[in-house]
Simulated scan of single mutants.
Amino acid sequence: MTQDLRIGIIGVGAMGADHAERVARRISGARLVAVSDPDTARAEALAAALTGTPGSAGSANAGGTPAGATGSDGVRVIGDPLALIGDAEVDAVIIASPGFAHAEQLMACLEHGKPVLCEKPLTMDAESSLRVVEAEHKVGRPLIQVGFMRRFDPEYARLKQLLDSGELGRTLLLHNVHRNKTVTATFHSEMIVRDSLVHEVDVARWLFDDEIARITVHAPKPTSLVAEGVLDPQLAVFEMVGGAMADVEVFVNFQVGYEVRCEAVAEKGSATIGLGVDVLTKQAGHWGGTMPDDFRVRFGLAYDIEVQRWVNAAARGEIDGPTAWDGYAAAAVCTAGVQSLQEGRPVQVEMVSRSEVFG
């Protein structure tokens, strides 16, 4: 492509609004041209705030307004997300809508041949994720990239490079911590698996370069600061096909701040990331630092790198990151994880083989 990639964003909550600001202000080779959200007032306020910024569309290049859209100049608000996907003035799509809407929106992107960066989860369960993988395969070229941004974080990237180098020998264990300061009251137990734990599912698959064979999700006594029936925190154990193991503590109402760290234990040593979120100080018998309130601070650079590489790849007709298959594999593990959480036992992960889909 010789012109900037024209991007439309579906869903402008915390994540989608962050991506919109990112595309409009920090991503080269791309322009924000449209947004869609059920909360029209929120979408219109965001569009107005970003219209005229260097990476957003101005009146000279915004194009006409289709049915169901508002704002003929600048960043347009298109009420129907499927209309945004089909809009001739939108070259590529970022999906940041709730997970239950992803399957339909991804299928529309495939139908229209639009490159798409889809925030996790790919879909809400393994069955629908597999249908997406199969539909993309029929298109004949990869169009879907999944937003597992940990792979783009410089610390995680250096850890991956170290483990792949063999310097520490075989990797045997991963210890993961994933803590949020707070989440909304509607964030229930199964969402902790599908929307939070899913990141560490991808991390384990990526760092081990292996699939997860079995998952057990334990639910200790929950914090008193959540609604009755919400199981928070949770402790998950992954058993890899090759025999390695990983554990994950997920605590989404930690109250202190946002904390993500990972320790890899190998034959000849270990490596830990996530400790240096800010300057670590030692003074007058105390040590410490500060902790960010949410993921946008901790992984801001990772998101910037992820979106920039997605834009660059989409302009080449490619993707450069986690695939629809990665999204399917994570959904399969989380489907088993929800079952484990509900039944209190280990659950085998059921997946088709790659050869069944790709031949």
Rank of each mutant, 00 (worst) to 15 (best):
T2H: 10
R6E: 15
I9F: 15
I9T: 15
A14Q: 03
A14I: 01
I27A: 10
G29E: 06
A34W: 08
D37V: 06
G52T: 13
G52P: 10
G55L: 10
T65C: 12
P66G: 11
P66E: 11
G71E: 04
G74Q: 03
V77K: 10
V77G: 05
I78C: 13
D80C: 08
P81C: 07
L84D: 01
L84F: 01
I85Q: 00
G86F: 12
D87G: 01
E89T: 05
A92G: 05
P98N: 05
P98A: 05
G99P: 06
A103E: 11
A103R: 09
L106I: 09
A108N: 00
L110C: 02
L117Y: 10
M124N: 12
L130K: 08
V132T: 04
V133N: 02
R141C: 01
L143M: 06
I144E: 04
I144C: 03
Q145N: 09
V146L: 05
R150C: 02
F152Q: 11
F152R: 12
D153V: 14
E155P: 06
K160M: 13
Q161Y: 04
Q161H: 08
L163R: 14
G169D: 06
L173K: 06
L174K: 03
N176E: 01
V177F: 08
A185D: 15
I192M: 03
V193S: 14
V193Q: 13
R194V: 09
R194A: 10
R194H: 10
L197R: 05
E200F: 01
A204M: 05
R205V: 08
D210A: 15
I215P: 01
H218C: 02
K221E: 03
P222S: 05
T223I: 09
S224Q: 03
A227D: 15
G229T: 05
P233L: 09
G243F: 14
A246E: 08
D247N: 09
D247R: 02
V250H: 03
F254Q: 06
F254R: 04
G257H: 08
R261Y: 07
C262I: 02
E263T: 03
A264H: 01
A264M: 02
V265F: 00
A266Y: 02
T272I: 14
T272M: 12
I273R: 00
L275Y: 06
V277N: 11
D278L: 13
L280D: 08
A284K: 11
A284Q: 11
H286N: 08
G288E: 09
T290V: 03
M291F: 13
M291A: 13
D293C: 06
V297Y: 00
L301K: 15
A302F: 15
D304A: 07
E306N: 15
V307D: 10
N312W: 05
N312Y: 04
N312A: 11
E318Q: 07
D320G: 07
T323I: 00
T323G: 00
W325Q: 01
A331F: 08
A332W: 11
V333W: 07
T335Y: 12
T335A: 14
V338K: 09
Q342D: 12
E343A: 14
G344Y: 05
S355L: 09
S355Y: 04
V357Y: 03
G359A: 06
